[in-house]
Design a protein around this nucleic acid. Structure first.
Lengths: 338, 338
DNA sequence: CTGAAAGCGCTTACAG
DNA sequence: CTGAAAGCGCTTACAG
């Protein structure tokens, strides 16, 4: 392997001068020598050894994208189209800024701390955070700048990028109300454990409240995830004597499961059952009828997260910022006037 | 930061002894001292500095997952559910083996060579390879073990994990023939550029040949990708005076686009048009009717790739192996007896 | 079983 | 504008 020493020898300068060229210390080397050295580096396809650089600088230019492992073995990316897209955007944006991205699935906080330390990572990004205790613990113990997506704790100093979940679900529910629906159910994974879901639930209640409607317990579907969860909801709906005319679901895949499950049981969507999703991810456009859903701009979300992270890496005092991104209703065909 | 030196000092041994504990050189250190040193390391949450280690060992334990950037700016992961799932599995399997995974989207071969060298990566995995010239170039120039998914060149020494594409599409087409279909079309992105697609096309022709049928040019849909491509196909079908009764599509998303496009134009699936996909990815189960498709086992595929890569890292002479994984038809509801 | 020393490829003060 | 030297945290022969 060719080193800075070889380049220096060939150029007839000291290694320090080569180092200054690599690090763009233009003030410390004459344009002529810089030219000469660059030419030699290109000729040999020289690239600096990152291990050596980070050993000294105590910074590796590596950013970790942290993926919590939910329950069983499957990495979260497997299940959620949203995650894949977000991670893809993050990688693109970070690479542009000369950072390297490692993806790290993990189960325990200690694993994250160890990996951050062992690589002297410059920063970390937590995607799809789960379980409160674990996430709070990670935020408090992290030794490097950390950006958290889709979760915020007011009592903690942290960097977060969230959606206006309450407004989003308020808008969705209000839209149903405006279409004449009065019997509106709600489907979500763990209503009472995740703050994101709680916010969305609150938005749902807000809208109902405006119309003087109280949520009905038997139209609240808790602990339902993914397409299978949606099909469970549909099965339950099919059994009900008095059904809601519409369901607000907190994720597209969940909503799609409800749509499919209803169709299989002879409940027509949207004629007999309207459904609204959340995210505007690929499944929303795949299903028939196409899903009316609350849309988020994933690219903007990724860019915001990267901006916070880089600013925090540059400025030690920048450790507390909470960005809330707007969402907007995407009208398609899964809602009917009632 | 706490170093090997601090641990050695506290344990009253040399740094070398600590190093031997870290590297599990049990022969070189007495059980008693090992115990004592481990306890001290745990007390301080000591983790070795990977930069220092890889500087000496010339190996970082980093594996690159290479994602070619297709055409425009969007990372491929964004578009394809298959990619996200494969990458998720790879990360899981590699982490179990104590490797770190960096994801690297790239446009030019030089970028890959530079990043491999700069990090002294132990190996690389190429997912979703595109354009022949670029992929061949990368295979020939790579300085580290490289596993390629879904592409093989007989004249090159390379490690690859592919599917039995020809048999897969043969099986799909034969299934249609057995259901009584005789007018069978074929839809794919670039039939004549990708070897994978060529193999699938050949399998399609094989099955037709068995029944003495010649493929009809106007039922071959080339250059169609993703859901939009499928909708284009459906639009073309709607215009045809003599339509095929079934379409073999080389990807689920493409097949789903055809199904949706047909439905929107009043062509009923499967009554009037049968459709078969490829991959058995999430979209296959999302659409109504659920897609009959050629299924692959992504987890097995990932595990095979990881096995080849690790073996190649261990053994310098292991640089040429071509694994072909079996595929099987997954019967659902998008095909009708004709 | 344990240690002292050299060195991996680079950067950082410190001099000139 | 340029250089000689020390050192980042670790491992690897080489001795004992």
């Amino acid at each position: 392997m060719i080193t800075i020493k070889d380049i220096a020898a060939e150029a007839g300068v000291s290694v320090m001068t080569v180092s200054n060229v690599i690090n763009h210390n233009h003030a410390r080397v004459s344009p002529a020598t810089e030219q000469r050295i660059r030419a030699i580096m290109e000729k040999h396809n020289y690239v600096p050894n990152m291990a050596a650089r980070s050993l000294i600088s105590k910074s590796s230019h590596i950013i970790a994208v942290l993926l919590p492992i939910w329950h069983a073995s499957t990495a979260s990316m497997l299940l959620d189209p949203y995650t894949g897209q977000l991670v893809g955007c993050l990688e693109e944006l970070l690479r542009e800024k000369q950072y390297y991205v490692m993806i790290c699935s993990f189960e325990r906080v200690e694993q994250v701390l160890a990996i951050q330390k062992t690589w002297q990572m410059d920063g970390m990004i937590l995607v799809m955070p789960h379980e409160d205790v674990l996430t709070r613990d990670l935020i408090q113990k992290s030794q490097a700048p950390l950006v958290v997506f889709d979760r915020h704790y007011d009592d903690l100093q942290m960097l977060s990028v969230c959606l206006d979940d309450r407004k989003g679900e308020y808008t969705a529910t209000k839209y149903l109300l405006e279409q004449g629906h009065r019997k509106i159910g709600f489907a979500a994974p763990s209503i009472y454990e995740s703050s994101v879901i709680q916010d969305r639930f609150q938005g749902y209640l807000d809208a109902l409240g405006e119309y003087g409607i109280t949520a009905r317990k038997d139209w609240l579907f808790d602990n339902v995830v993914h397409q299978e969860g949606g099909e469970t909801v549909a099965a339950a709906l099919a059994e009900m004597r008095e059904k809601p005319s519409a369901i607000v679901a907190t994720a597209d895949l969940l909503a799609c499961g409800i749509v499919k499950g209803c169709q299989e049981r002879g409940i027509r969507v949207p004629d007999q059952m309207s459904v609204i999703g959340f995210d505007d991810s690929m499944p929303a456009r795949l299903i028939t009828p196409e899903l009316t859903t609350v849309g988020q701009d994933i690219r903007e979300k990724a860019a915001t997260g990267v901006r916070l992270l880089l600013q925090s890496i540059e400025d030690d005092s920048f450790r507390d910022e909470h960005i809330v991104l707007d969402v907007k209703l995407v009208e398609r065909q899964s809602v009917q006037k009632s």
